[in-house]
Design a protein around this nucleic acid. Structure first.
Lengths: 203, 203
DNA sequence: ACCTGAACACCGTTCAAGT
DNA sequence: ACCTGAACACCGTTCAAGT
């Protein structure tokens, strides 16, 4: 007997439950039974809407990364510095998409910049784009530095480091991957960000 | 009743069994029961010698990669841990080449894994390759952990982080760049490695 | 000290059966 | 079409009991 969920579809309940669990704990495992219980549906129902755990994870990923942060997360003083910076980096990563979308994005990048020796024009265009990206990261770092979360020093090398991490995550979205990208990506982002924010402890 | 294994210790049998399983299939999961069965010991015996699956994994990695690279930079005790790890990562990065060579390498990778939806065969082949790479990094981390350079804990997420950094640096070698890549690359590698090695200061 | 194997608490997936 | 929940085949870890 199907339960009455007052009009909200099971699919939606499941996604909401999974998103809530991730919101509470980014390292949450999102097991079939845990999500199903939280959503108050059966495991069978969950499987009906998401034929595999990977499908569920992907759907949740799409929901979280998709336009959730419409305004600049760096300004949200209610969160700790590391969470805000991670949210910003996620926002950069979002357009990369997942699965086929990510592959298509890299197809374009490949054809433009890698397939053939780039013309000077293309080259400088890319360098401008890349610098723009790093500038954005640097801006975030200065905001956090103003709050004392990291040293006031030069942020260029830190920004470049984060940019490289983003490039790595981005290409990994296009390459074949296990179904746990969501978790490992978050973990990696936090590792990178913590690296930056605790750099003042050293030297 | 303990079985007679004609003098070969259980510990050794277990390691041999696990190594054999990895030799046959690098994607092998090395589950408790599978390894124990192969070694013809009980799961309890396996747990006695290797208190956790991670302990087993680490021991197997040490055996496999231990004597494999005689000129392994990780063994060079005359250098500090961070320099050795950076050297190891550099060794991984070296075959990626620079300039046109890097572009050619990524052309191959692109065509194989990204251009079209990879077949299951291609997919698992890549995942095996990737896991192999991460395993190698994990091995280096266990060596350094034995020296107290970083916590004994789980190294999988650390290895994945470093793997992502390497992927980022690798793709950046193929993309247009300023002429100072090699210097900034070194900086990034040290940033990433210091991040790993100082993680024990926190928490 | 070393080893056994049952038991516990999980996991993802499948599927006959219901509405 | 949507949903249920039992069942299956796993997983890692714990532990009383044996030698």
């Amino acid at each position: 007997m199907a339960q009455d969920h007052s009009g909200i579809g099971s699919r939606e309940r499941i996604l909401a439950a999974a998103a809530a669990m991730l919101a509470e704990d980014v390292t949450a495992t999102l097991s079939v039974r845990a999500v199903a219980a939280r959503a108050e549906v059966s495991t069978g129902s969950l499987r009906f809407h998401f034929p595999t755990q990977r499908a569920l994870r992907d759907a949740v990923l799409a929901r979280i990364y998709g336009g959730l942060f419409s305004d600049d997360p760096i300004q949200d003083r209610s969160l700790p510095a590391r969470d805000r910076l991670v949210n910003c980096l996620r926002q950069v990563l979002a357009p990369a998409g997942v699965g086929q979308q990510a592959r298509e994005a890299w197809t374009k990048a490949y054809q433009t910049y890698i397939a053939s020796d780039p013309t000077d024009e293309v080259r400088t265009a890319y360098l401008a784009l890349e610098r723009e990206g790093r500038r954005r990261i640097e801006y975030w770092l200065t905001v956090l530095a103003d709050e004392g979360a990291l040293p006031e020093e030069d942020h260029t090398s830190r920004a470049r480091f984060l940019s490289t991490v983003l490039n790595g995550l981005s290409i990994e979205r296009a390459l074949p991957a296990e179904d746990s990208i969501l978790q490992s990506e978050t973990e990696t982002l936090y590792t990178a960000v913590d690296c930056i924010l605790t750099a003042n402890q050293r030297e």
